[in-house]
């Protein structure tokens, strides 16, 4: 293992280019320190937490840009977020626990790529984008296209998530919903997470976004469900149709923490709760 502490981004990419081992980025360390067993001996570790350019929370072109190494406590204490994206901020209040919030970073949560990660369902419904950088390139992609499979991402070799961009007005005038179901109220891993945004006018759904976590190989928007719901009146929604669509869009599994059937039914229940329907 060789440890690198780059002086700046330019230096980081130079070092990365010359590295011929497996590369790990170290930010908060809350994952890497749990995986010491699985980390091969021949790895290069690049420390990035000290690079402020990766950590800032700022306002750019109508977006709030959250640096990838911003910790969850940075997010919870950000005035920008409190002002523009209070729903996003409040939803993360019970992430892990305070002593982990002070270390763990939003970028780490995203690129760990766990299907259970807390932040992705929120980013999906808020139309977030990712700013990715590499030595000679910088690109912005919709967060929606980042995950491609279980722990598979749209991320090139030696490419880094620089920031998460959320439209400043993403929550404006919308009804919001976020519920994470875990085994306990703190220090818990999600069994099901449902996040939603909606706008209802004259009892008709004018705008709807729903994303779920822990019930697919990666968190995703339920696009077919959204298409079904849009322009419908609440009382036109049929239980069997809703169930049928969700049954195609989510593929929960049984594991030590929960069961397939439970996950399915509770996911359905929470979506109904979000829609405000009582069959």
């Amino acid at each position: 293992m060789i440890f690198y502490r780059p002086n700046n981004l330019k230096n980081l990419f130079e070092l990365l280019e010359n590295s011929n081992a497996t590369n790990y980025f170290l930010a908060g360390g809350t994952d890497i320190n749990l995986q010491t067993k699985n980390i091969p001996k021949n790895v290069n570790i690049f420390y990035i937490s000290h690079l402020n350019v990766l950590r800032n929370i700022t306002e750019i072109n109508g977006h709030i840009s959250i640096g990838s190494t911003a910790t969850f406590s940075d997010i919870l204490h950000s005035d920008y977020l409190a002002k523009h994206l209070p729903f996003f901020q409040n939803s993360l209040k019970f992430f892990a626990s305070p002593i982990i919030q002070n270390l763990a970073t939003i970028g780490g949560n995203i690129v760990n790529g766990s299907p259970t990660n807390d932040v992705s369902p929120l980013l999906l419904i808020l139309d977030a984008k990712l700013e990715l950088i590499s030595k000679n390139n910088s690109r912005i992609i919709p967060f929606n296209s980042f995950y491609r499979g279980y722990k598979e991402f749209d991320l090139q070799k030696n490419e880094l998530v620089k920031a998460i961009l959320i439209p400043k007005n993403a929550e404006n005038n919308l009804e919001t919903f976020y519920q994470k179901v875990g085994a306990r109220n703190s220090l818990t891993i999600s069994k099901i997470t449902v996040a939603g945004l909606k706008f209802i006018e004259n009892n008709r759904i004018k705008k709807i976004k729903i994303a779920v976590g822990s019930v697919n190989e990666y968190p995703r928007r339920l696009v077919n469900l959204e298409n079904y719901l849009i322009t419908k009146r609440i009382n036109e929604i049929k239980k069997d149709e809703l169930t049928k669509i969700i049954a195609v869009e989510i593929t929960p599994i049984s594991d030590f923490r929960s069961d397939q059937n439970y996950r399915f039914v509770v996911c359905l229940n929470l979506i109904e709760k979000f829609l405000g329907i009582n069959f």
């Binding site: 502490r5 908060g28 749990l34 626990s97 002593i99």
Partner: peptide, 28 residues
């Protein structure tokens, strides 16, 4: 040793953290 119990909590830069999942470099 996994940040799940808090017995190792310390203040790092005025914030409580689990010192079993943080590294020396974080104290720099």
């Amino acid at each position: 040793g996994e940040g799940e119990c808090g017995a190792c909590t310390i203040l790092l830069n005025d914030k409580p953290v689990a010192s079993c999942i943080a590294n020396l470099i974080h104290a720099e």
